[in-house]
Amino acid sequence: MIEISRCGALTTIQDIGRHGLRHLGISQSGALDPIALQQANLLLGNAPGAAVLEISFGPLALRFEQDCAVAMSGSSFAASHSTPDAAFETRLLPGHAAIIRSGETLTVSKPLVPGARCYLAFAGGIDVPMVMGSRSTDLNAGFGGLQGRALQAGDLLPTGPSSQHQVESGKGIRPLSPSHILRALPGPDYESFTTDSQILFWSQPWRISHQSNRMGLRLNGSALQLEAPRELCSAGVLPGDVQVPPDGLPIVLANDAQTIGGYPRIANVIRADLWQLAHVPPGTSVYFVPVALEEAIAAKERQERYLQRLSEYSQRSFT
C-alpha cells in the first residue's frame, strides 16, 4: 500500500479515459497527456493504459509501505526519495524507472522547467475499481478514481500485481518536448467569423488564462468576432475543439469538457498535438498554426508509429 502523506491542489488518478460513452453525457476524462501515460507505464512493464497519478501542482509526498517500482513522465518535476533518517535523497529522474523501498517517502515538488503536469506510474498500476470501462477520475460527475475526487493527504493507493523485479534502474525514455505551437484544422464554423478574426486567430499569441483546467484552456487575446450573431443548436463536441463563446475569447476543450455545446467552433487542434494541452501552463502563450488535413493525418501516423516502437521496446525489456 502507498499512502499520500502530503498533496498539492490537484492530483487525480487517470488512465486512457472513457470512450464511446459521450452519447450518455459521459466525458472522456483520462490523462491529458496520453503519450506520457504510456511512456511511464511501459517503463514499468505495465499495460500502456494502466492508471497513474496526474500531478498538476506539487508538492506531493507518498509513503511506501512496500517496495514498488515507479516511473515519472510528462512535464519535468523535481522529485526525490529517501527514508526519514537518511543522510541524502535520491533523485527520481523523469523518464526513468526506479524502485522505491518500503519505508521510503517519494516527494514530487515543482516543475524543473515551466510545465503544467507530470505523471507518476506504479508497477502494476493503481488498482481502483473500474467505472464504466475506466479507472479515470471524472471530477465533474464525481465517479472513477478514488471516490470521484482529487486525492488528499491520508488517501491510500492500492496497486495491482506486477513483475517489478524485472525493472532495470537507469533505463529511460526521453520525454517529448512540448511546444507552444498547436497545429489545427479549420472548424465547422470557421467561415462564420470575419476575415479579420480568421487572420487574428492564426496570428496572435493566445495567453493561457488562470481559469484553465481539465475541462478546457481559456485563452486571452483580442476577441474574435462573427460576421453575424448565430444561434447554434446544441451539438456534440470533442476535446481539441476550439469554441468561441459570445465574449470572443476562445476555449480549447480538453478531456473533462462536457459532451454537448452550443458555441461556434473556429478550429480543431489536430489529434497528434492534443497531448501538449497538458503542458502549457497559465500565463504562457500558445499559437495556432493551420495545417492541411494530410499533414494532420501524417502527424497522427508518426505518433502511432512512435507508440508502437515504444511498446515493442517495452515488450523486449520485460519478456
Partner: peptide, 17 residues
C-alpha cells in the same frame, strides 16, 4: 469535419433550439 477523425452532420438549419 471535426479534426481528422470526426464528422458533424447538421440536419437542421441553425437558429432553432
Amino acid at each position: 469535419r471535426l479534426g481528422e477523425d470526426a464528422l458533424l452532420f447538421l440536419f437542421t438549419a441553425t437558429g432553432t433550439s
